[in-house]
Amino acid sequence: MPKNDLQHDVEQFLYYQAELLDTKQWQAWIDLFADDGIYWMPPDASYKTWEGQPAIFAEDKNLMNVRRGRVLHPDAWSQRPLWGTNHLVSNVSIQKEHKNGDVEVRSRFHMMELRRDDVRHFAGSYLHKLKKSKAGYRIQLQRVDMTNAQAAYDYVLQVWV
């Protein structure tokens, strides 16, 4: 496959991932992950592994389903007010391409979040380890390094970034 097609495919996948978050299609978003896929947001960019250290998020698919179930529960009080997000994904750079089609890709994102009348901005970088499958890419690892990982959070994050 010519290189530019790969770049295009990977970019489309990353855009789709962000689009599912912004349109709150949580189940479809979880389905993007491989069965043993992990969503990880470290509190420190120097962390090398998602296990055994504090993590803002460190979720396998089961835990993602706990979060999804909670967010959709009618009594998730903090989910009641108007809220939404808008992701921009950019600077997509393929780091590694394996013979079997798996890729490792870095990108940057900017997310605007609205909650009630308040706007917050978050930015950072993604590292995606993508597994090639018949149905397209599956996420083995989505690492999210927030620029503000070490800063105090004014209120919290409730769903994946």
């Binding site: 509190p43 504090p54 803002i56 460190a58 706990v66 009080w77 903090s78 919290v156 409730q158």
Partner: peptide, 14 residues
């Protein structure tokens, strides 16, 4: 610690 007390808490958020 991660589930209850992180900035992505499933508990303290509410």
């Amino acid at each position: 610690y991660n589930l209850v007390n992180s900035p992505a808490t499933l508990i303290n958020a509410d």
